[in-house]
Amino acid sequence: MLTIANRNFHSRLLLGTGKYPDYSIQKQAVDVSEAEILTFSVRRMNIFEADQPNFLETIDTDQYTLLPNTAGAKTAEEAVRTARLAKASGLCDMIKVEVIGDQRTLLPDPIETLKASEILLEKGFIVLPYTSDDVMLAKRLQDLGVHAIMPGASPIGSGQGIINPLNLQFIIEQSTVPVIVDAGIGSPTDAAQAMEIGADGVLLNTAVSQAEDPVKMARAMKLSIEGGRLGYEAGRIPKKTYATASSPTEGMSIG
């Protein structure tokens, strides 16, 4: 069970809603992923195309927790504005704080992220900041009172997987709030690795939406996250340099 701000979720997979081939595939992918938390962005409406479909209109919003992001914000001020617009929808009170400091790498600006998180906590939001995998930054965010910490595995949409598992492990070990690995996950292996390290959840988008078969990948991610979590709970064996036989050495009929 994943608990964020006293809300319980069965699924540890948080799914993004961007860049799917079409809404039908997206809906199927969301269904099979069994994700309960879906992320969205806030953007200007095309007011001259009122009939244009919108994914949000195709799903039962009561069944999901919506997690809008502040993507597009370069400063704390812009992130706060986007968060307030999102909340005014009346559909959610959670916000993924995402303040991008560099457009080429899309890495978060830690200082603006910290500032935005502080302001949004004061305003009563449930705050989930997307951060770099810096251990002290995670601690500072936690000290502010954020409801989860979401360190990136590698740059957004890069599919490079977890570049620094050690930092991630340090963040998880010290954290008193859920740690959700966000961004950079490329394959089911990456997702399972995050969970085996002890992450409380994984947030991914491109790995599913841009897969050759998004629906199948959504299921693969669900299963690997469940598998990784079970493996973490079960406690893996230590790695050893040399072999240890699995079969008994006594009672052999040969030799």
Partner: peptide
């Protein structure tokens, strides 16, 4: 006038 669109 803004709304929710797909995003990660």
């Amino acid at each position: 006038i803004v709304h929710f669109v797909g995003g990660g």
